[in-house]
Simulated scan of single mutants.
Amino acid sequence: MISSLPTWLSQAPEPPAPGFKAPSGEDFNIPPMFEGVPVLEYVDKPVIQLIFSVVLILAFFAIATRSAQLLPGRTQWLAEKFHVMVRDSIARDNIGPKFRKYVPYLVALFAFLVVNNLFGIIPLIQFPTLSHPGMAYALAILTWLIYNIVGIRKQGFGGYVQLMVWPPGVPGWVRIILTPIEFLSNFILRPVTLAFRLFGNMFAGHLLLLVFIFGAEYMLLIADSITLKVLSPFAAIMAIVFTGFEAFVQLIQAYIFTILTASYIGASLADEH
């Protein structure tokens, strides 16, 4: 009978502690917030973040310019410095003499990218909106439409296509090789690489942060090993270090996306490519 068995045989062994589950792409699959509700069933956390970022940016510039003074306060000074930085170091340097009409879009684009990227390290949000490829590609397509429309309006359709795929001053036999390369580069690969660079950096950076954050949690609270518990503070410190590094990458990627957009517009407006 079971009651007569020794204690060490009658008691079932305790299940081992669950192993560490490494973060993966599944951690980026956020379920809808209003599942089953028509139209709203497509609204999830990244969509809410996009709306929230627009509200934040509009509110910031509205407050900064509501009562502009000759001697600016902190908010007005910050908004002016942001505007001047985009105008001088991005628009003017990359577009040329006709840069002013594109400054508002570039300012809005840069602010939008900065806010949505930094959502990845802001407590209670902690998710970079543009780590979803669809949103990065939507921005890249918008850039593609703008620089192509600008080029066609400036050069005419035929002249613009010739400018982008038929390099001037090149021997005819070389053009046979360069023309398909230029076509792929200017009309197809530009938006793909523009979006992939942004999405890839946001995705990889957030995944790396999750590794250290979840790793520190597992080592301290779940793992049975004393060694892992002792080492858990080091994983937490690395999470903090990489949070600072990720903030730097997020700002740099916003700058790169904006400056490439300006350079594409400038190339479309140029007389020679």
Rank of each mutant, 00 (worst) to 15 (best):
P72C: 07
T65R: 13
I63S: 02
Q76M: 05
P18H: 09
P38M: 11
Y218Q: 03
A262L: 03
F20Y: 15
T143W: 09
V241F: 12
V107G: 10
L221C: 00
L178S: 14
K229H: 14
H83Y: 15
P104K: 09
S232I: 01
I149T: 12
I252P: 01
L184C: 05
V211K: 09
P15T: 07
V241W: 06
P168W: 01
L208I: 10
A59G: 07
A239W: 07
L260A: 15
E182T: 08
T65H: 10
F82K: 01
P13E: 08
P18Q: 08
F61N: 03
I122E: 10
I259G: 03
T129V: 06
L58N: 09
Q76F: 09
G156H: 08
Y42K: 08
D44Q: 03
D271F: 00
R66W: 13
T129Q: 00
M33C: 01
A239T: 04
Q155C: 13
P31N: 02
E272Q: 15
W166L: 15
L228T: 02
R190K: 12
E246K: 06
L142F: 13
Y255R: 08
Q162W: 02
L142V: 14
P133A: 11
L269Q: 15
D44M: 01
D88T: 10
E35P: 00
D88Y: 11
I149L: 14
K81T: 07
P38Y: 01
R66T: 04
A204Y: 10
V161L: 14
F242V: 10
A239L: 04
A62W: 06
V47Q: 11
Y105K: 02
Q162C: 05
A236K: 04
I252S: 13
P13W: 00
E272F: 13
A223H: 06
G158L: 11
T243L: 11
M1K: 07
L209T: 06
R153V: 10
S185H: 13
K81Y: 03
Y218G: 02
V55K: 02
V55Q: 05
S67N: 10
